[in-house]
Amino acid sequence: MAYSYKGSISFGLVYIPVTLHSTIKNNDIGFNMIDKKTMSRVKYKKTCADCDGREVRQEDIVKGYEYEEGKYVLFDEKDFEKLKSKKDKNITIEQFVNLAEIDPLYFDKPYYVAPTGAEKAFAVLLSAMEEEGKAAVAKTVLGTKETLIAIRAKDGQMLLNTLFFAEEVTKNPAKEIKNEASEAEIRMAKTIIESMTGKFEPEKYKDEYREKVLAAIEQKISGKEINSPRERSEGKVIDLMDALQKSLLAVKKPAAKKAAPVKKTPPKKNKAL
């Protein structure tokens, strides 16, 4: 399995060589950009402001920082590598925290962590983290960017998530909402929540829209038109309490009928032979 990163997890004076493997596969349906007049694929080529349309080869492209208008200092990959210390090249654990303390808002990309050596040290760290219910907060430099990281243990597996730094998370633009709800409305909302509460089972949820797109592709291939589904109009509900009551009726499951108690027949006594 291809890996996204090869390095080490630094745990005190212990170094555990690891690789990171993406947990997510791209399930998108691939569409090409097409010129509808010629039915030809649209291609993009890299050019520059002063190239007169000439395409620039990939090997001639470097990173440049504009320090004055029209003036750049250039950096190549070797320059960035020279800046990295040994600590920057490793995933260095800075502290351990309770996983619940990390707001999901900060989570970015998830990875599986696989040891490529020091398996005993890996197993010790994994078991200790899982038994203590702790997550490790670490940092490393991936590419040209320092990355904040959370390492956690679950069901005997070590998982890693890249995190956003606090300065990268923007403030919520929504204005503060004053709580003007009545106790009855809140109780009704709680009842709806309770009625809809269950165990999270991710396998229950399917990408239904993707299935519709695949079906539409087949329809297009066979020359059929795509028709919008007929949907019943729900009607507007102005009163909040009325909307809550109707919502509760829609989600409330019918009470299961209690099974009649089974009459137990007393065991027959064995007749003496």
Rank of each mutant, 00 (worst) to 15 (best):
K6W: 06
S8K: 04
S8T: 07
F11M: 02
G12I: 06
L13Y: 06
V14K: 03
V14T: 13
Y15S: 12
P17T: 02
P17Y: 00
V18Y: 02
H21Q: 10
S22M: 08
S22L: 06
K25L: 06
I29V: 14
I29H: 08
N32I: 04
N32M: 08
N32W: 08
M33N: 12
I34L: 13
D35P: 03
S40K: 14
R41Y: 13
R41F: 11
R41E: 12
V42I: 12
V42P: 01
K45I: 07
A49C: 07
D50E: 08
E55C: 02
V56C: 01
D60L: 04
I61E: 01
Y67F: 15
K78L: 06
K82W: 03
L83N: 00
D88L: 00
K89W: 00
Q95R: 14
F96D: 02
V113K: 00
A114I: 11
A114N: 13
T116N: 05
G117M: 09
E119F: 12
K120P: 06
L125T: 02
L125C: 03
E130F: 01
K139P: 00
T140Q: 02
G143W: 01
T144R: 03
K145P: 02
K145F: 00
L148N: 09
I151L: 05
I151M: 00
A153F: 04
K154M: 07
K154H: 12
D155H: 09
Q157E: 09
L159D: 01
L163G: 00
F165T: 14
A166M: 10
A166V: 13
E168S: 07
E168C: 07
T170M: 15
K171V: 08
N172M: 04
A174C: 11
K175M: 12
K178S: 12
E180A: 05
E183L: 03
M188I: 01
A189G: 10
K190L: 15
S195F: 11
G198I: 05
F200H: 14
P202C: 06
P202A: 10
P202M: 11
K204C: 12
Y205I: 12
K206N: 05
E208Q: 09
E218R: 10
I221Y: 15
N227F: 09
N227L: 05
N227A: 11
E231S: 15
E231Q: 14
K236S: 04
K236C: 03
K236F: 03
V237W: 09
I238G: 03
D239T: 03
D239K: 05
D239G: 01
D242R: 13
Q245K: 15
L248Y: 13
V251A: 14
A256Q: 15
A259S: 14
V262H: 09
V262N: 07
K263P: 03
K264P: 02
P266S: 05
P267G: 04
N270L: 04
N270Y: 02
